[in-house]
Every structure is written in structure tokens, then in C-alpha cells.
Design a protein around this nucleic acid. Sequence first.
DNA 1: AAACTGCAAACTGTCAACAGTTGGCAGTTC
DNA 2: GAACTGCCAACTGTTGACAGTTTGCAGTTT
Lengths: 238, 238
Amino acid sequence: MSEPVRSRSLPRNNTFSQATETVLREMVLDGTIAPGARLNEVSIAAQLGISRGPLREAIQRLSSEGLLTVISHRGAFVRTFSRQDIVELYELRCALELHAVRLACERATDEDLDELDAMLSDTESRIRESSAHAYPQELDFHLRLVLVAGNQALMRAAQDVQRQLALARSMSAKRPMRARAAVIEHADLVAVLRSRDVEQATLMMSRHLDHSMHSALSVLGLPQDGATEESDTAPDSE
Amino acid sequence: MSEPVRSRSLPRNNTFSQATETVLREMVLDGTIAPGARLNEVSIAAQLGISRGPLREAIQRLSSEGLLTVISHRGAFVRTFSRQDIVELYELRCALELHAVRLACERATDEDLDELDAMLSDTESRIRESSAHAYPQELDFHLRLVLVAGNQALMRAAQDVQRQLALARSMSAKRPMRARAAVIEHADLVAVLRSRDVEQATLMMSRHLDHSMHSALSVLGLPQDGATEESDTAPDSE
DNA sequence: AAACTGCAAACTGTCAACAGTTGGCAGTTC
DNA sequence: GAACTGCCAACTGTTGACAGTTTGCAGTTT
């Protein structure tokens, strides 16, 4: 551990700080740094072959994004999620994506909807081959839908929430999950969007997200309903 | 300009970095640093009597929050808003606060609603004295409502959006605005919340936000509807 | 043996200096 | 006079070192 290891080399972003943000986010989301783990600044900086300055700046941004929890004089921890946190994130996701559906219902062009359908058939064929890796595609569909809604601020917010949920999910071993069911629900949603029926579309999205949340809670081994249960693998903010 | 001026002294937060974030946010929101202006790191650090390290960390966080725009090798600028930006922020605010109303309709206790009414009569009496400074109170009511919805993630998101809109508003001289009308609309909303009528409550909030947006656009001297018009006082992110 | 005290190592917070980039200005050319 | 070129000042990006805090352990006490 004496020379720049850089097992994951820095992308060609303009500054070390930006590149480090990207790399760190990946390392957190794919579990290279486990949830609840502390980020040792000197060791990570050494691994990336940079100094602590740009690393700390990247940490601040990821903390604002909700992926890290920074505690004064103790360090930055990969965020962990209580059942309550996940329910709240799903409620927030509901707020964002239901509104996205409303907007998309007005604004989506037929080409937009065609592309969404194309995504779905692609996902479907991949599932036929190996049922793994279906979750990222699930997220991609939702983000694409928000994109179609044509609102950058909304898009950014939705992206942040999804990243947090992806991290929460990474707290457990990934299971094949309900990929097939999700694809069907997506397809039905697109069909309703074509008919421009806002009421029906929001209703379907609402149900879909509800299914998704229960699936997530079960994957995480958390009770589907019940009293609040605090996570204790990482301390809360001060 | 040789010694620590500290016209605005740092609060007793744990670290310089955190304290600086708070102070900088205030300076941006109250116009001490004008929208579109560049933040000179050395001069601000000198003013606050700290070095550039913690200052830069604070800048990163405020950039994630949407108050600053950072451009590599050129600096951090107080964000400016195009008409499109404001419309998008209002759409996002709609998504968040309409959902907050739905949740509040289920969860708000009678005491919560009493407190909201108390806030309103307080605001009302202040308006009677001097019609100025009504805008912060307007925001407080909305945040309080989101708080009643009982979702921290939602609260954080709503707070971010409101801060950005407050900054956008600061781009123009503050006018007394439609404070009276807003208070009435708020009071009506609380009344409907008491009857637990979700449909009616969301409808009212929706209309209220629409009024608010048009008022904001007019205060900013932007067309109420029409083609996109880019702001040009500060460059966009790269 | 359990609890408390004090030290030491490890780590974060902060600083001051160095390096690289940008933008503008003076001088030159056409 | 306008456009171009090259330099210089100002500023951001990054670094390595120093300072203060936390945490765990060894030693002591009850």
C-alpha cells in the first residue's frame, strides 16, 4: 500500500475532485465499500493516487446526495437505511414519479412512448437469458420516464432518490426479484400513457411503486408493516 | 482588507466548514452576494478568517443544493434562473407539496392544524402592521405543512426547492406581493384539511401554487407564458 | 473481575504554499 | 484601425504538513 494502486482508475473528468466523486459513487453503489463502513480518507486518497483535499470535496457532495453520512471528527460513513428511511424514500419517489407520469401523459410524444416500449422488450429478452441484473434496467425505465416528463429539476431529484434506494437495496444480497412482474406493469403503464388517461396512469404507477416498495422491504428482510426499527450499523448524524 | 473582517461572524457550529456553509447560504439568500456574481475564494476566506479548504467544502455542498454553480477552473457563481428553471422548480414543488398535502390529510393531528391556523393569524396581524416581509412567512407555512406530513426525506427535498426559489426571487427587488391573498388561500386549505377531503385539499394546493408561480414570474418580470428565455448573467455549468 | 484513568496511535480539520489554467492586456502585424 | 499573438496577473486545483479530536488500550484502583 505504498504506491498509487488505482485499482479503479480515475476517469478523465476535468478535475480530480469531480472524477473522485464519480468513482466513489460507483464504489459505494456496487458495494466495494460496504454500507455502514467508514471511509478512511488517507487510505482512499492513496488508493486513488490523490491527496485528501479533492477527496474531501467529493465526500461533501456525496453526502449532500444522501449516499454518505458525515459526522464531525469521526468521518464519513456509507449510509445505512432503517425501515422508516426506506418507506420515506418510497413516499418521496411516489411524489416525484407520480407527478412525472402526469407530465409525461401530457408531453410524451409517440416516439418517446415507442422508445419506452423498446426498452421494455430489450429488458424482457435479457431476463429470458439470465434473470440477473434486472434491477438496474428497472431503474432505467423509471428514469427514462422522468426524462420524458421534460423537467431537469425533477429529473435530478428522482435520480438522487433512486441512487439512495439502490444503495439501500445493496444492503442485502441481490435476489432475482420480481423482474418479470415489473416489466409487465411497465408495459401496461406505457399502454395507458398512449391513451393519455392521466387518472388511470397515475393509479397504475401508484400501484406499481407500492409493489416495488413491498418487494424492496422483503428483499431487505424488513417487516412489510409495523413499528419503526432503527438501523444500527452506522451512527446517525450528530 | 488585510485582517479578518468577519462582518458576519461564524456561528459556533462544530467545524469551520459547516459554519461557513451556513453563513454562505445566508449571504447568497439575502443578496449580500448578488445572483450571477462570482465567489472569490481568497477574498471570502479572508473575510471569514479561514483558509480556502473549508470554504471550498462549503461551496461544494451549496452547489449540490442548487444555490451555486461551479465551473471548473473558473469558479463558483451564485446561481441565476431562467424562466424555464423557475417553471421547472415550481413543477417540482408541486410534486412535493401536493404529495405532502395528501400525507398531511391522513396524518395531521388536530393540534397540527391548530398550529397552522395560529401561524396564519400571526402572519395576518403582521401584514396589517407592515405589508413587508411577508414572503418568508409564506414559505414557513408551506414548510410547516410538509413537516406535518411526517417525512424527513420529503422535507429535505422541499426545503432545497424553496431555497432555490427564494434565491430566484431575490433576483428582483422584493415587492409586497400577494401576501393577503396567500394567507386566505392558506386558511382555506387548513379548513379543508380539517375535513380530511384529500381531493379538495390537493386541488386547492394545486391552484395556490399556480397562483404563486404566476406571481413569482411577474415579480421577476418574466412573461407568464411563452417561449423559453435563457438567463445570461451567469454561465451555465459546463 | 469490573470500572475508571490516562496515555498514545490513528484519523479528521485546517492551513499555507505550489502548480496549472484562465482571461485580459500590451504589442505587433496586416 | 482591426485582428492576432504572446505574455502576465489573478485565481482555482492540488498538495503535504501541522493541529486538535477521538478511540482503543494498558495500567491502576476498587
